[in-house]
Write a protein that binds this DNA or RNA. Sequence first.
RNA 1: GGCGGCGUAGCUCAGUUGGCAGAGCACUCGGCUCAUAAUCGAGUUGUCGUCGGUCCGAGUCCGACCGCCGCUACCA
Length: 501
Amino acid sequence: MARYYVTTPIYYVNDAPHIGHAYTTITADALARWHRLKGDDVWFLTGTDEHGLKVKRSAEANGLSPQEQADVYSARFREAWALLDISNDDYIRTTEARHHRAVRALMQAAYNNGWITLGTYEGLYCVACEAYYVEDDLVDGLCPIHRRPVELLKESNYFFRLSAFSDRLVEWYADNPGAVTPEAKRNEALGLIKGGLQDISVTRTSLDWGVRVPWDGKHVFYVWYDALINYATAVGYGEDTVRFSAWWPAVHHLIGKDILRFHCVYWPALCMAAGIDPPHRVSVHGFLLVGGEKMSKTAFNQISPADLVPIFGVDGYRYHFLRDQQFGPDGDFSYEAMVARYNADLANNLGNLLARVSAVVHQKCAGIGPAPRPDSPLAGLAAEVYRSADAAWERPAPSEALEATWLLVRAANAALEAAEPWRAEPGPAVDAVLGDALEVLRIVAVLASPALTRSAAEIWRRIGLPGSPLDVCLPEAALWGGYPGGVAVERGTPLFPRLKA
RNA sequence: GGCGGCGUAGCUCAGUUGGCAGAGCACUCGGCUCAUAAUCGAGUUGUCGUCGGUCCGAGUCCGACCGCCGCUACCA
């Protein structure tokens, strides 16, 4: 059995969940669901990143302890994921004891291997912030927050000898052409490496909200190194060797382009330093823009899932982002496009197909769904669609997988139109075309279930099938002829009521 | 400044090794009336950013230019 370990970034608890966070999480969820259908052993991880200066500061501003602050925000992410039917198997928080143990173990291994050494960091420091700045951050040479002079300060820090890994990283990229996707992002990562890597500071003494360095208690690990290691923590790094070696390195990281450097350069190198394999794959996607602008707190243009789910439903929400936003390039979010896609694909094509088929089955077949023809003209297309969808999920390209699936929906509508069973007398000809249409609905329910978590099951139930499309196995479940016939078909209210533009 | 990408129908995009310009949405016309003003069929729209080159033939290859964008350039 294949193993599929998929992760989202752990989201920083300094921000409320918005559609950008949700995009990564829904994509990971859909991939996890697809692989579960394929019978793979799946582990789907998401979580929150809870250490670091920004959390500490926000906590102070809110009159909370850092842990209380983290608890509040972490809960918001968990609520958002519950709202969106996210099926994660684990939820990691970097403040958990299991994670502290794993970070210490992994960094200790890198230290023991000689890749972490004591050095001196020199930078511009604001005493009030207790933080370093680089010149570009400064406003008129002053701290951007306190508007006070900064001073040049030296601090003893541990450094990760990243510069020693350039050759090994280049080699790794050469040996694993699919390790970073899409191609453009892989080139960016390679560009970073070939542009020359510098050793990087991985600890702080000026901050205490983090994981203590095991060999030197005056330091805590800088939040990024703490954060990246979550992927190893969750599958038992340092605690359960058997479990860890079962899941690692069969890991697929999904990330946004903003954190490419950390995941495609620092993280593989750190894995090498600690003596474990780099991740199997990192898939990098772009940003969701709103009106062409990047979402940001200061621009007041953040949209949250909770704004849209009441209008589109969970399935309408998930479908839009998986189908309309290509995985890779930046995408522009618009309410109008979301309504248009919902009406065209969900209401008009899929929802209406279910409605018309169940209506005619009631008029011509006494409500009992007939079996499909083994030699249906739609059978070949169904097989082709499955192949395309499977390949697309693998890339990953959810929009292409769903696009392929909808070819089948359209073909079923066209086949009905050609046969006009509503005009014919009940009999084998009517049964044949309706059976084929029901079979298409069954297959589409399976293939679309990673996106349409709820309505796929509802279609399944309405066409009289036992169980759930979430419990079937691919590729068998996509083979033509699975609809048994002779089962009661339910006439229901519209699955996806049309929305006004 | 360096590296890379993009510019194809009103919109979002696909175009494999150069071989008659495509899909979905929108729009127009027609059919149908089982269905959620749904569906089905037909059709319109493109100087494939500009100019030049190679070739029997260029959206595709080469060069220049225009426009847009990404990454990067001492930013833990």
